[in-house]
């Protein structure tokens, strides 16, 4: 029976074909039948996880606690040198220079990316802002978050730092960063579910070695990843505890 592999829906659209090629590589290397299923949003992906359909997942850190503690998933690898960080930005013409000077009632443009949303809202707290006194506008993409700022439809945008950095220079020149997070320890993780867990060591060593092989390196390039780094159980538990403290 085929195993189901899914990717956190916040993946960059540039890498869709890369994930399909990665899945083919994974099947060849492990000898397992693996079907890649892309969900359009976090809600439908979580429904699939809850009904035990998922066997492998490139997971958003926000979902790691549920995957490990409720569904028996274990961590395999994370991308080398790529932590999730968030940015709070405003229109360049906005006179506000500090989050502490933002006022209740502001319009905040976000995506449904849960860890970035969490980090962003934490960075708004010094301004006495929270979900109860701001107006949240959920956009499909970070480009749309930027457009809302440029059009003046939103006062503040919460971005994945990597997505912000990849915006065109023309867009970035019209925006202003108020805060960039420097958390360093929150990252996406490739995780393995209970049905495959006996093969965890095999999967992990294949993935860690992937960048040492020319073909494997080419596949990784299609994902925008330099190499996979193994994750120990305690490192994952630490990140889950950290997310838990932030989600308060």
């Amino acid at each position: 029976m085929s195993n189901l592999f899914t990717i956190s829906p916040d993946f960059s659209p540039d890498h869709i074909s890369g994930w399909y090629i990665f899945n083919t590589w994974l099947q060849k290397q492990t000898g397992e039948a693996i079907h890649l299923e892309m969900y359009n949003d976090f809600h439908s992906q979580r429904e699939a996880i809850k009904s035990d359909k998922v066997d492998l997942i490139y997971a958003n850190p926000f979902d790691a606690a549920m995957l490990v503690r409720e569904k028996g998933f274990l961590p395999l690898v994370k991308p080398l040198g790529r932590a999730d960080e968030a940015i709070i930005a405003v229109n360049a013409e906005n006179t506000v220079e500090d989050v502490a000077h933002l006022l209740p009632g502001i319009r905040v443009a976000v995506t449904d990316d849960p860890d970035v949303h969490l980090m962003g809202m934490i960075m708004l707290e010094p301004g006495d802002l929270d979900a109860n006194n701001v107006n949240i506008n959920v956009c499909d993409t970070y480009v749309l978050v930027a457009k809302h700022l440029l059009r003046g439809d939103a006062d503040v945008g919460i971005f994945l730092a990597e997505a912000y950095d990849n915006l065109s220079n023309m867009i970035k020149s019209q925006l202003k960063i108020l805060v960039r997070s420097q958390i360093s320890v929150i990252h996406h993780s490739l995780m393995i579910g209970p049905k495959l867990v006996e093969k965890r060591d095999k999967f992990q060593s294949l993935l860690v070695d992937m960048s040492n092989d020319a073909k494997g390196k080419g596949v990784l390039e299609g994902l925008g990843i330099d190499a996979w780094v193994g994750i120990e159980d305690e490192e994952m538990e630490f990140m889950i505890d950290l997310m838990d403290t932030l989600n308060t």
Binding site: A100, I122, M123, E125, P126, G127, D128, E237, F238, D241, L242, D244, T245, L246, T248
Partner: peptide, 27 residues
């Protein structure tokens, strides 16, 4: 602004994690 949680491993408290973030000046 500090948040402290127990680290529970195999049902046992093995320690505590404390995460501090920037507080609001009003608070």
């Amino acid at each position: 602004k500090a948040t402290v949680i127990p680290n529970v491993r195999n049902g046992k408290v093995t320690g505590y994690t404390s995460v501090r973030r920037k507080p609001s000046r009003t608070k």
